[in-house]
Design a protein around this nucleic acid. Structure first.
Lengths: 333, 333
DNA sequence: TCCCTAGATGAAAACCTTTTCAGAAGCTAT
DNA sequence: ATAGCTTCTGAAAAGGTTTTCATCTAGGGA
């Protein structure tokens, strides 16, 4: 591997000068600059990133923390982040976390050893130690899809409760009164979306019956399927279902179909997220759209701004959500 | 940040000794070891990875090259790789490549600057320079889902042609004779799967009509949808469609549905890949299963073996594929 | 002529580790 | 007592950069 010293020797200058050329510092004669540049090109030399990181004590790398089995929503989010972080001149280092304490511990250890310039969380952690460590080290950070009031970190998210209410309200407007809810037991957004469901019912004077809400252990289609199956099995009549995520909704539709019930003729289904695939289910999924791309961009912008300015005014960015009408909801009467 | 020197000072020993303790070298008194360990724990010290990489000239990091807009198949593949690479004690560094020459150039530059211990490609590159560079540097590498005979790199893949033939044969066995094909224009596997389609027809003496094959610019549902739409528009009758990937198949089903045609009653659809979501479409997608998880594992194993043994016997691992029967194919007669 | 300044360059230190080499201390065998 | 092992430890070099500080040159003003 050719190093800066080799280039220096070949150009008949010192390593310092080569470094100055490479980093576009002033104080180097045009003629010398050109000679160095020529040799760099000829030798195909590029700076060694590891050595550079060490001396500069920054790595031009932003960490992104995401669940190991990230869902399609998170996948779109992180593609967006990676895109904009690259635009800002940063590399992205992903940390795939299992949902366990040991995984979070391992992550904390790695975080201490790694030289990250900033970090974005797409995944709410249980272990407060990690947030504390980040705060002490005043490592630039942004939270995406959730917030942590007690730490005052910048965050981008939607109003989970209002978005769920929007979905359920949409069903009620179309004449539905007996509405089921499938949500997850983990993470704050699951509870918040359930709260939104209740609020919508209350706002229209519909009584809440607990049997119509089911909490499943995860947010994927398989969980949605089993959730819907148990909703079908219970006694109460049901004309529509609110699924806390699109993936749950996709599983719910599958379960209905398997049970010989038609969507939306027999049961209407509405989701929340608007992931790419929701436009391609049959029937197309009516859902509430999160501006995924913009949220990813904003998260990237926030960390980069923090790094550039060396501080950030406490800032929580709340994005608005909108109904996307497709074919999975039927209008009654 | 506390460094090895701080620990050494506090323990009243030299940095060398601390290093020996940390790396579990022999020749350090049990009593000294314990004292150092205690202080390490107390201070929460962890080795600085950047400095360590520099002196060891290895980073314990494997690069994974994947398209920027990776599909669900690739997503499952890389989750599997990340999992097994971690088991082998390696971190994973992703490189998301756009489908452009400049993106490949930028990647090559980065590759030269980065200190990677190995690299896995889930994405076939056009630029041979990159493969050449890897070969010259004798960087441990594995190809996944394709191969490059001329470089003799280890590779894991399926027999694309045979798998497509399997799918189309399945349709023919069920009485279908007028079978459409939706495939992509890019990447070798698209052409190979098309060849498999043709081979199946030929094997059963069914004449090949070019109007029944459409090539779309990408492999996602939207492309599948437009492909199917143009297949519907043409004159030839059609009782079944082979889509070169599951995502294409999902889009095809959508298009049929939009056009008032029922799957499988009016038209049967078969895919290839067996991605997670294919179990949750309505109707469930009949498809050909690639053992995605195992392929990811094998790729990880191959690079790690190369690194460990410092060489590898030329090795191409071909996985077998199997039909997964769901509801999207109807038996005629 | 002399001094001062600005521009250009290089030597050396620093970043944080690991590893080599040499030396010290405590044994055992002669 | 000496030589020769083992076991343990520290000093110093190395890895590839950037940056500080010092030096040198040339040009301008007094």
């Amino acid at each position: 591997m050719t190093s800066i010293k080799d280039i220096a020797r070949l150009a008949g200058v010192s390593p310092s000068t080569v470094s100055r050329v490479l980093n576009e510092r002033e104080y180097v004669r045009a003629e010398v600059r050109q000679r160095v540049l020529d040799i760099v090109k000829e030798k195909g030399y590029v700076q060694n990133h590891v050595a550079r990181s060490m001396v500069l004590r920054r790595s031009f790398t932003i960490g992104v923390v995401i669940p190991y089995l990230f869902n399609m929503f998170q996948r779109q989010l992180f593609a967006s982040m990676e895109f904009f972080l690259e635009q800002h001149g940063y590399k992205t280092q992903f940390f795939f976390l299992r949902w366990s304490d040991s995984s979070e511990q391992a992550f904390l250890r790695r975080l201490k050893g790694e030289t990250l310039d900033g970090i974005i969380f797409i995944h709410e952690l249980d272990n407060p130690e990690i947030y504390q460590y980040i705060q002490e080290r005043s490592l630039p950070v942004a939270l995406c899809t959730f917030e942590k009031r007690e730490f005052g970190f910048p965050a981008v998210h939607i109003d989970e409760e209002a978005s769920a209410e929007l979905a359920v309200d949409y069903l009620i407007q179309r004449g539905h009164h007996s509405i089921g809810c499938i949500t997850g037991e983990h993470f704050s957004f699951g509870r918040q979306r359930e709260d939104g469901y209740k609020r919508a019912l209350a706002a229209h004077g519909i009584s809440y019956s607990p049997e119509l809400t089911v909490r499943v252990p995860s947010y994927n289609p398989e969980a949605g399927r089993t959730g819907m199956l148990s909703l079908i099995r219970q006694k109460q009549p049901l004309s529509a279902v609110f699924a806390a995520t699109d993936e749950l909704a996709i599983g719910a539709i599958k379960a209905l179909c398997e049970s010989g019930l038609k969507v939306p003729e027999d049961v209407s289904v509405i989701g929340l997220d608007d992931i790419d695939i929701s436009a391609f289910t049959t029937p197309g999924l009516t859902t509430v759209r999160q501006p995924i791309f913009e949220m990813g961009k904003k998260s990237a912008d926030l960390v980069c701004e923090w790094i550039a300015r060396d501080h950030i005014q406490e800032k929580v960015e709340s994005f608005t959500t909108t109904i996307v009408e497709r074919e999975s909801v039927r209008t009654l009467h």
